[in-house]
């Protein structure tokens, strides 16, 4: 469990930080978008058990919930400086869901990334305390997702 997680994180760090260095012919916006989508997919993968418990489709299990939340917390803490390159948006590459307004001055992107860290830590600290705590924490986490997701579009490409 630990090794596979470390491996996955290692691979992600590579994708997030290093690839533009040794693949200079590739536009960094492309790799940034790929890395962002990988990050979002990992969030989503780890959210699955939390959402299903919240919805009531699987029984509450504090240990499983805490493990999933630990991954989400770890993901939120990755240094994201190099994946939010201005211009790496839907207008540049259709398969990106990101709107350019996410970089507008009043969107405070870095503050939003910090907000995600805070609610992920809260999620991790509280999901083990029962289904009510999980429900509160999952909805709170969604608000942090949405701080950025207001600047995204539904994308069928």
């Amino acid at each position: 469990m630990f090794t596979s997680r470390a491996l996955a994180l290692g691979a992600l760090t590579l994708a997030l930080g290093l690839s533009p260095v040794f693949a200079e012919q590739i536009d960094p916006r492309d790799t940034a978008i790929t890395a962002r989508q990988a990050l979002m997919n990992l969030y989503s993968f780890n959210l699955a058990p939390l959402v299903e418990m919240d919805k009531g489709t699987i029984p509450y299990d504090g240990v499983v919930a805490t493990a999933a939340a630990a991954n989400i917390m770890a993901l939120s803490m990755l240094d994201q400086t190099s994946i939010w390159i201005e211009g790496s948006d839907h207008g540049y590459l259709e398969s990106s869901n990101t709107l350019p307004t996410i970089w507008a001055e009043d969107s405070y992107l870095s503050g939003k990334v910090k907000g995600m860290v805070n609610t992920s830590v809260q999620l991790h600290d509280t999901v083990g305390n029962g289904i009510d705590a999980l429900q509160t924490a999952v909805v709170k986490l969604n608000k942090s997702c949405n701080a950025c997701h207001v600047y995204t579009i539904e994308n069928t490409n």
């Binding site: 989503s44 699955a48 959402v51 909805v139 969604n142 997702c145 949405n146 997701h149 579009i153």
Partner: peptide, 28 residues
Amino acid sequence: ETDIAYYLRSGFTPDYDSVGGEMVHVVD
């Protein structure tokens, strides 16, 4: 129906994506 009602409460879609765009406000 469960998925729709859940989305409007939590903002999460059946495939664990988070609501986006102006729909964020509707879910809020």
